[in-house]
Amino acid sequence: MSPVPTVRGPYAKSAERRSRILEAGIRVFAAHGYHAGSIQRIADEVGISMSGLLHHFDSKAALLAAILERRDELSLEFMDVDSHHGIDLLRALIALTAYNQSSPGLVELHCMLSAEATSADHPAHDYFVARYETTVGAIETAFAEAADAGQLTAGISPPEAARDVTALMDGLQVQWLLTGGAFDMAVLLRAHLERLLAVPL
Rank of each mutant, 00 (worst) to 15 (best):
M1S: 08
S2W: 03
S2Y: 04
P3C: 05
T6R: 14
T6A: 14
T6C: 06
Y11M: 12
Y11F: 11
Y11V: 14
A12H: 07
K13A: 15
E16V: 08
R18C: 03
L22I: 15
E23K: 05
G25H: 03
G25S: 03
I26F: 02
F29V: 09
F29G: 02
A31R: 10
A31T: 05
A31Y: 00
H32F: 08
H32M: 02
S38I: 00
Q40S: 06
D44S: 07
D44R: 03
E45F: 03
V46A: 05
V46L: 05
I48K: 00
I48P: 01
M50R: 12
M50E: 01
M50I: 07
S51R: 10
S51E: 11
G52A: 05
L53V: 12
H55T: 11
F57C: 07
F57L: 06
D58W: 05
D58A: 13
S59L: 04
S59D: 06
S59M: 05
A61C: 03
A62R: 07
A62H: 09
A62I: 06
L64Y: 07
L64C: 11
A66I: 11
E69Q: 14
E69R: 13
E69W: 06
D72V: 10
E73C: 07
E73A: 15
F78T: 04
H84F: 02
G86I: 00
L89K: 11
L89I: 07
L90P: 02
L90V: 06
L90G: 04
R91I: 04
L93D: 14
A95M: 01
A98P: 05
A98E: 15
Y99R: 07
N100G: 13
S102I: 01
S102T: 15
P104G: 04
P104Y: 05
L109I: 07
C111Q: 14
C111M: 15
M112F: 00
A115W: 07
A115S: 12
A115L: 09
A117D: 09
A120K: 11
A120I: 11
D121H: 09
A124T: 07
D126H: 12
Y127N: 04
Y127R: 09
F128P: 09
V129M: 03
A130W: 06
R131S: 13
T134H: 15
T134L: 14
V136G: 06
G137Y: 10
G137P: 02
E140S: 03
T141I: 00
A142S: 12
E145D: 00
A146Q: 01
A147I: 00
D148L: 14
A149C: 01
A149F: 01
L152I: 03
T153H: 03
T153N: 02
P158N: 04
P158T: 02
A162N: 09
V165R: 04
A167Q: 13
M169V: 13
D170K: 05
G171T: 11
G171V: 11
G171D: 12
L172Y: 15
Q173N: 13
Q173L: 09
Q175T: 10
W176Y: 09
T179H: 10
G180D: 08
G181E: 11
G181W: 10
A182R: 12
F183C: 11
D184A: 12
D184N: 14
M185I: 12
M185F: 09
A186L: 10
V187F: 08
L188A: 10
A191Q: 14
H192P: 05
H192C: 08
L193C: 11
R195V: 03
L196Q: 02
A198C: 03
A198Y: 02
A198M: 02
V199A: 04
P200W: 08
P200M: 10
